[in-house]
Amino acid sequence: MEVKQYNFKAVDNDKVISLLQDKFKSVGTSEGNFSLNHGQIYCEVSKETIKNTIKMLKNDKDLKFDYIKCITGVDYKEYLEIVYSLYSFDNNYSVNIKVRIDAANPDVDSITDVFWSADWFEREIWEFFGINFKGHPNLKTLLLPGDVDYHPLLKSFEIKWEKREYVRPKVFE
């Protein structure tokens, strides 16, 4: 049996950043603010181009970011942010894409067409931050009970005492 040999750290930060800058131009994304934090690349892209960007990062032959590690929602009070953490098995490299989202009108394109595994990440962000993912096939609550009308991880969230009281459903009696 032939075992595939991986070239660990086949690329370095500078190479990835220069590659990304080139590739971003091809999909119409602005160059983005690249930054290094704890040895990881972060870059900001605009909300409109996020789906094309992720699709390009996955399908591009040089980059091959073929695995989505995590999608994280962040609340900065003035605006919301989503961080897509992508990983390339072939290059042993990861990149984090940030998208800034308006807090008053939070919505963004779903990337479930590109990464099927983004389904639950997006559902979780939707229920905890209230960010609407346009084009998501199954946008319903994942961890919270189905009847909630609040988003607990927002900074502005403050629950009323009546909401905390558990009301026993009568369906089993």
């Binding site: 961890l143 919270l144 009970p145 905390r164 009281e165 558990y166």
Partner: peptide, 13 residues
């Protein structure tokens, strides 16, 4: 106890 998603005791259920 103060969580948005935790029942305050099983005797509520």
């Amino acid at each position: 106890y103060d969580s948005y998603n935790v029942v305050q005791g099983i005797d509520k259920v």
